[in-house]
Design a binder for these strands. Structure first.
Length: 508
RNA sequence: CGGGGCGUAGCGCAGCCUGGUAGCGCACCUGCCUUGGGCGCAGGGGGUCGGGCGUUCAAAUCGCCCCGCCCCGACCA
């Protein structure tokens, strides 16, 4: 795994936050502020988001959330990681309108069918009823199709490789912070190519980028695969996804990349003249990841004490908490604290009127990967205490080597978070060879109580088969691109032979 | 969109059944004291009881309507 780029540098955007309410060991608050995962996973998740100061429900705007500074800073790091990779593969950023003429959505039959129920529509503007309503974009294939048609005439105009960072609105019936909100932030890439082969290469190139960022930056292992026909994007030929496993064993679709074929090209008349002088429709792709990834990040690494952030994504990688009693200690400790912090790129928490203990809890809840403790005893011994968020291990180190020790701790945290998540994924992946088996493994799994598994089984890519699984709320997450199991076998529902096993799970 | 729960100070709640001065803990402010895992003591500030309409001499409390949040289901990144 690439472990570079661990310096605080320009990613350090945080200011000293307002103090967060803290209760855990106070006399009159018996219950802990963060519900244990084992008790109720869904409530735990919400507690971590709130206590980690990542986001809060918008309360006055149904189904929406406020992404707070701590959460947005993580999103900014993610954006940069993805954006750098998109640029390196020759994509350019653009921006299309938020409002899309309603008629556009209707041009691709499957697309309109898929999105109609969740559209927000603007019918009145400027005090007048509009002749044609606008929909607030749920995604931008249609409006981009319209402009592609304008821009593309010749094979020389291809490929077109664009991406936009934007907000979209989907009127969801049930929302959870980051995982599913009415409005969310994402990037949507849209490309047009002269051949299907080239489009397919693009789709898989992006899927690789998604998987690489998920694994090496977010330390979140994923399975790359193809969606079933029943689960694919409305209007696509095929959809590919990366699927991650949360700590409760439920699956989370963490990114999708679509082979749109010529469906939108035909709907929006995006034609080009090929080298043979013939008119042909372009082959398009679209792909996206959203703020949902932050939810995945939280449910992959965080623990009962709060947020745990992999160092490569942590807006604040290390905080130094000074400890002192008397005034003469205070000046000496603070002087050393600022000197060491400047040297290693840590933030000093020199807030007055807060005990060190309160500060430890504060940064722990916010997922800071390493906390350094410096007090009079350390000054006397020339040491400093280094504490890791992921393991809770405390180690006194010589001040002369703290920079190296800190870098090593951050790197090791990054690696071991990934290893731990990967182990969990493996430990909770099981094989099944009959429908009854799949059902008995998954039937009791819920978002709150956990117990989810990835069940690898042979199943035909047929909506009727998806429908059977749906009866017990399971879905085919994807059909992995790489078969790590036993090749062809009989479908657990139809008995027909299929290439290899698919991932069946309950999902968010 | 159906079922359940909830909405009272920044946060967590009590009060509602049985109508009659708006309460508690934490947080916050001031002072002293403390600081290696959520210090302590004393004093203090803070509320259109989610909104509207109604019943009543009187509504946080009773009735009707609306809004929002959380959980569970059906739809979805």
């Amino acid at each position: 795994m690439d472990s570079g780029n661990l310096d605080q540098g320009s990613l350090e955007r945080a200011r000293l936050p307002p103090s967060v309410v803290s209760w855990r060991f106070t006399r009159h608050m018996a219950e802990s502020p963060i519900t244990a995962r084992s008790q109720d996973f869904a409530t735990w998740y919400q507690d971590v988001v709130l206590q980690g100061d990542m986001a809060e429900p918008a309360e006055i705007v149904k189904g929406c959330m406020v992404i707070k500074a701590n959460g947005y800073a993580v999103w900014e790091v993610m954006q940069r990681e993805f954006d750098d990779r998109f640029k390196r593969t020759n994509h350019q950023n653009v921006y299309f309108p938020l409002l899309i003429p309603q008629s556009f959505l209707k041009k691709e039959a499957e697309h309109v069918e898929g999105f109609s129920p969740e559209l927000a529509v603007v019918t009145i503007a400027g005090g007048k009823e509009l002749e044609e309503p606008y929909v607030i974009r749920p995604t931008s294939e249609t409006i981009i199709g319209h402009f592609f048609a304008k821009w593309i005439q010749s094979w020389r105009d291809l490929p077109v490789l664009v991406n936009q960072w934007a907000n979209v609105v989907r009127w969801e019936l049930r929302t959870r912070m980051f995982l599913r909100t009415t409005e969310f932030l994402w990037q949507e890439g849209h490309t047009a190519h002269s051949t299907h082969e080239e489009a397919l290469e693009e789709v898989l190139r992006i899927l690789d980028i998604y998987a690489e960022v998920a694994e090496s930056v977010m330390a979140m292992p994923v399975i790359k695969g193809v969606k079933t026909r029943a689960e694919k994007f409305a209007g696509a030929l095929k959809s590919y996804s990366i699927e991650a496993m949360m700590q409760n064993g439920l699956a989370l679709q963490a990114g999708t990349s679509h082979d749109l074929g010529q469906n939108f090209g035909k709907a929006f008349d995006v034609q080009f003249q090929n080298k043979e002088g013939q008119l042909d429709y372009v082959w398009q792709t679209s792909w996206g990841v959203s703020t949902r990834l932050i939810g995945g990040l939280i449910m992959t690494h965080s623990d009962d004490k709060g947020l745990v952030l992999p160092p490569r994504l942590a807006p604040v990688k290390s905080v130094l908490v000074p400890i002192y009693r008397k005034d003469e200690e205070k000046s000496a400790v603070l002087e050393a604290a600022h000197r060491i912090a400047a040297e290693v790129g840590a933030k000093v928490d020199d807030r007055e009127g807060q005990t060190p203990g309160a500060k430890f809890f504060h940064w722990e809840r916010r997922g800071v990967p390493v906390v350094l403790e410096l007090g009079p005893r350390d000054l006397a011994s020339g040491k400093i205490v280094l504490k890791r968020r992921d393991t809770g291990a405390k180690e006194p180190v010589e001040q002369s080597v703290v920079k190296e020790k800190l870098a090593a701790a951050l790197e090791d945290t990054q690696t071991s978070l990934f290893a731990r998540a990967k182990d969990r994924l493996k430990a909770n992946t099981v094989l099944a060879n009959s429908l009854e088996e799949v059902q008995s493994i998954l039937k009791d799994a819920t978002a709150e109580k956990g117990g989810g598994k990835f069940v690898m089984a042979h199943i035909k890519d047929d909506p009727d088969c998806d429908a059977v699984l749906k009866e017990f709320k399971a879905t085919v997450r994807n059909i992995p691109l790489v078969d790590e199991y036993d090749g062809p076998g009989k479908c657990i529902i139809t008995g027909e032979t299929v290439d290899h096993r698919a991932v069946i799970a309950k999902a968010y």
